[in-house]
Amino acid sequence: MKALLWFVLVCSLVFNVTTSLLWSGTTQMASSIASGLILLGSAFTLWLLREKNPQNS
């Protein structure tokens, strides 16, 4: 599950960066907002799934 969330996070980050190069105007804004929401959702889910008390040994 975590591997898939990391993959989604990285792909949405790359897509969000490239939207400014590929499109302009409303298309760029809509795709940037959508990929940004996906990025925030996967980052938040990864944060919720983190280890609460990691063992430092």
Rank of each mutant, 00 (worst) to 15 (best):
F44Q: 05
S24T: 04
L37G: 10
L46V: 08
N53A: 13
G25Q: 01
G41F: 10
E51D: 15
V14R: 00
R50F: 12
S12M: 11
S31A: 15
K2G: 06
G36A: 09
T19Y: 09
T45V: 07
L21A: 12
A43V: 02
L21W: 14
T27Y: 07
I33F: 12
M29V: 14
L49Q: 08
L37M: 13
V14P: 01
L48T: 08
S20N: 07
T19L: 02
L13E: 01
S42D: 05
I33R: 07
L13R: 02
K52T: 03
L39G: 08
V8R: 00
S12N: 15
M1L: 01
S57H: 12
L5F: 14
I33C: 12
T18F: 12
L22N: 06
A3G: 08
L37N: 05
L9G: 02
W47M: 10
W6L: 14
S12T: 15
G25W: 06
L46Q: 07
L37A: 12
K52P: 00
T18N: 08
Q28I: 00
K2N: 07
G25V: 06
C11H: 05
A30S: 02
L21V: 13
P54L: 10
L48Q: 13
S57I: 15
L46D: 10
L13T: 04
S12Q: 14
A34Y: 02
V10G: 01
L5A: 09
L5K: 07
L48N: 10
V14H: 01
M1C: 00
R50L: 15
L46C: 13
T19R: 01
G25M: 05
Q55V: 15
M1Q: 00
G36Y: 00
T27L: 15
S31L: 13
S20L: 13
L9V: 04
S57T: 14
E51G: 11
S31R: 15
S32N: 14
T18A: 10
G36T: 07
Q55F: 14
L37D: 02
L4V: 12
L46H: 08
I33M: 15
A30R: 03
A3I: 11
L21Q: 12
S42C: 13
M1Y: 03
V17N: 01
N56P: 11
N56M: 10
G36I: 05
W47F: 13
M1D: 03
N56H: 06
K2F: 05
G25K: 09
T26G: 03
S31I: 07
R50A: 15
K52D: 10
T26N: 03
S32I: 01
G41T: 07
S24P: 00
F44V: 06
V17C: 02
T45H: 02
L9M: 06
I33E: 09
W47E: 09
L39W: 11
S12Y: 02
S31T: 11
I33W: 10
F44C: 07
A30D: 01
L22P: 06
W6V: 04
L40F: 09
L13G: 07
S42H: 01
S24W: 04
A3M: 08
A43C: 06
T45Y: 01
T45E: 03
K52S: 06
L40K: 00
A3V: 10
G41N: 08
K2C: 05
S20I: 13
V17F: 10
L9Q: 14
V10I: 09
A30N: 01
L21T: 12
P54I: 03
N53F: 15
L40G: 11
A34D: 02
V17I: 08
W23H: 02
